[in-house]
Design a protein around this nucleic acid. Sequence first.
DNA 1: CTTATATTTAGACTAAATCTAAAATAAGAA
DNA 2: TTCTTATTTTAGATTTAGTCTAAATATAAG
Lengths: 132, 132
Amino acid sequence: MNTNIRLTPQRKAVLEVIKNSNDHPTAGDIIERLARDGYHFAYGTVYNSLKYLTDNGLIRELKLGEGVSRYDGNLHDHHHLQCKICGKIDEVDHDISPQWLKDIEKETGFAIESHQVMLKGICPSCREGDSG
Amino acid sequence: MNTNIRLTPQRKAVLEVIKNSNDHPTAGDIIERLARDGYHFAYGTVYNSLKYLTDNGLIRELKLGEGVSRYDGNLHDHHHLQCKICGKIDEVDHDISPQWLKDIEKETGFAIESHQVMLKGICPSCREGDSG
DNA sequence: CTTATATTTAGACTAAATCTAAAATAAGAA
DNA sequence: TTCTTATTTTAGATTTAGTCTAAATATAAG
Ligand SMILES: [Mn+2]
Ligand SMILES: [Mn+2]
Ligand SMILES: [Zn+2]
Ligand SMILES: [Zn+2]
């Protein structure tokens, strides 16, 4: 981990946008929000900044299986729950049992370094008036 | 679920390739293997077939956060473990606690329909002679 | 100030997947 | 069978997310 983090104006602006969002924005969302704030950075710069901030632990990159990366300013360990209908992403603070992970390590011989639980379902507002 | 499944020669060939693979191939891998077997289908046909087979429950589509879909002929509920170094994908039969899911439903109000645990780590053969 | 290193920029490029419109195939009715 | 309709395949264009490149700019070190 790099102790000497260099926050250029571009990186700072990207970080701010993410810290001020709680909807796990994509790179595209972030570029839009930057533009709304008057910042017009090159696409490559935004992607480089996202990589830099992720590599330095200031944000988290989420790959929820949509084919797009999302970014998260919430650094606590948590999982995500996405609504199949409206796409809304909710957070889950419960973590899975450490024993479960140990059992899998024993069984597979892998050294597990990270795990992510991706849950899909129907959110409360989409459940209202559903026909299923 | 559709009870009237129509297996065209193209769909049948794609299904065969997946059933004969245990490495969770991508669409690209599948096209390569089809070519090796003498089949030269249009890209669109292979993608359409994969969608058709997935929608009809004959195969599973996996999105492990690589930006590519993989396909799985193993229809039993299971999770996946990928090596950060060589990319190998292993299967995990342990399932997470149903109570854990119920707790999350109660807390979030979501009706959970599916869940996938994605584990990352270092596989046994990549661990041999590691310097970390 | 001068040189080396790091970063940004615009735009070309890539890879995976989807879309389109025509051609081919299969199914159903007479 | 023949006519008609629905489904599927095909080749190639298009889309989307992201990476790469090389020049320009900014920062740091001597
Ligand atoms: Mn989150
Ligand atoms: Mn599997
Ligand atoms: Zn919803
Ligand atoms: Zn490995």
